[in-house]
Amino acid sequence: METLSYGLSTLAVLVGTAFSVIGILGLVRLPDVYARMHAVGKVATFGVVLLTIAAVLVVPFAWSKGLVLIALLVLTGPATSHAIGSAAYRLGIPMKRALRDDLAARRLPEAGA
């Protein structure tokens, strides 16, 4: 049983770290702030959640803490990335290589107004 949970924990650490590395790669490779937000958001959801699961599998009686932590991460992560994305759009930072922009037709309230 202990071997199993250690094995699963190791797997979770490896996959979580791999996704974190991919997220950072995306941050470097993707062209603009909006696309980069996707990569960063993925690091938060995948990397951190998997590392939390790994910790929970090894430390006994901590699963409920891990569950609360994961719930809070998943609930609050999108709020921050939305805030950054929305602020970027209101500041008029252009999208690179954009195929369509349904929002361009609508006039947004001025930033800071």
Partner: peptide, 20 residues
Amino acid sequence: GIRVARIVLDPQLPIKPGIL
């Protein structure tokens, strides 16, 4: 998540960004 990871790792970076 797997789909986005694939896009990021692809040498050609096949993104088609846009606002929907």
